[in-house]
Simulated scan of single mutants.
Amino acid sequence: MRTIAVVTGTRADYGLLRGLLRAIDDDPQLDLRIIVTGTHLTDSFGRTVSEIERDGFTVAAAVPIWSGDDSALAAAADVGRALPEYARALADIGPDVVVVLGDRLEAYAVATAATILSVPVAHIHGGELTEGAMDDALRHSITKMSYLHFTSTPEHRTRVIQLGEDPRRVFFFGAPIVDILETFEPMPRRDVEERFGIRLPEPTALVTFHPAIMDVAPAEHLVEELLDGLLAVDELHIVITGSNSDIGTDAVRERIARFVSEHPERVDYVESFGQRGYLSAMRAAAVVAGNSSSTVLEAPVLGTPSVLIGDRQKGRPIAASVEVPEPTAAAIAAAIRRQLAAPPLADPESPFGRPGFAARTAATLRDAEIPRPPKKSFHDLEQGDDHGR
């Protein structure tokens, strides 16, 4: 039996990982061990570890990381303190593989600890670009520390191979969100309103904004322009969700809290919807706005038009239903009005592959040859190299 440790640090990555967790747990040849960290263990972000437990999963290890100080210096210190805790969790569990998703500091720290301990790493969503955040450096670093790679588009697979990874270990199985949306059954609008204590009249904007330290402008400026732009659209109701625990998040969250209190007749706030609640709210919304990855991933697949603010998602595939205005209140308001006036999407598009990510990934984790230690050779590209396609 092969032991698979899977790391989750936020409500967002847990939603994407849930199907894979279920597929691993259901496989008699695999032993699932979940490592919970990040905002799952933080009261101010909803302590969403409870959602994992409600889904029937057992938490093998819980590793707090964030001190509550959102400065860059504190984040660096938090990662340094968490590194030996992740190492101890991995040593106690003794996994054959540890799975990490994305590009957050939690994933980077776990991959670093695993590399030092010679534990093979499997990375989901490598090869992507988000030029407005430091995530690119973290994501590509995780790629180099990983033995198996599960990418969401052929382009992303090519980029991982360009980083020197053997094409035989780089898989295009699509994005986890495609599995989720294939079987997604939205909650009725009234149920969403009652469960979360919000209003979803027509038209409603669903808004999520996270700080990104390499964005086109400071986060405090961008969120101000976004909120002013939303408010400038007459009759638009606004539902805002909580920001991630990122560098600079306190100022963003404080400004949003003031905005909510200043405009109670037009604005509702939900710290964490959970995945089904969030997707149901998105389906009910007339437009999605902000800089969350959901503006370019989930919204286009669900057929909800979106307005993307700033450079946080720059470099990701952008569907025709996503508008990227200049980051000024006037331009944002104009983009929202255009999206509200646009005809419904007849054929929602997705560049992220076909359903089956969880099953294919679990099978690969079970069947792939994974040496210990995970020794790799650098894959050099030759002229005319097709990158393993």
Score class of each variant (00 low, 15 high):
Glu155Gly: 13
Phe357Val: 02
Ala205Thr: 09
Ser261Asp: 15
Phe57His: 12
Pro203Val: 02
Gly388Arg: 02
Leu117Pro: 10
Leu236Thr: 08
Val301Trp: 15
Val267Pro: 01
Gly277Phe: 02
Met1Ser: 09
Thr130Lys: 01
Ser294Ile: 13
Pro201Met: 08
Arg354Leu: 15
His263Trp: 12
Ala333Tyr: 01
Glu165Gly: 06
Glu262Lys: 06
Lys144Phe: 13
Arg312Tyr: 04
Asp25Cys: 10
Ala330Leu: 12
Glu220Tyr: 09
Pro211Leu: 08
Arg169His: 12
Ile142Asp: 08
Ser280Pro: 01
Ser294Gly: 12
Leu30Asn: 00
Ile180Asn: 15
Ala12Gly: 02
Pro348Val: 05
Ala286Pro: 02
Gly274Tyr: 07
Pro167Thr: 06
Gly242Cys: 06
Val207Pro: 01
Glu220Gly: 08
Gln162Met: 13
Glu369Ser: 13
Leu163Pro: 02
Ile161Phe: 11
Leu222Gln: 04
Leu163Ala: 06
Ala122Ile: 07
Ala62Leu: 00
Asp136Cys: 00
Ser280Leu: 06
Ala60Lys: 04
Tyr278Asn: 14
Glu271Ser: 12
Ala107Ser: 14
Ser71Lys: 04
Ala251Asp: 14
Pro188Leu: 14
Thr115Asp: 11
Ser146Thr: 07
Asp385Met: 05
Val59Lys: 12
Leu17Ala: 15
Phe357Ile: 05
Phe352Tyr: 10
Val7Arg: 07
Thr158Ser: 14
Gly274Ile: 09
Asp25Ser: 10
Thr112Leu: 15
Thr130Glu: 07
Asp311Met: 10
Pro95Ala: 14
Glu128Ile: 05
Met282Cys: 06
Met282Val: 01
Gln29Ala: 15
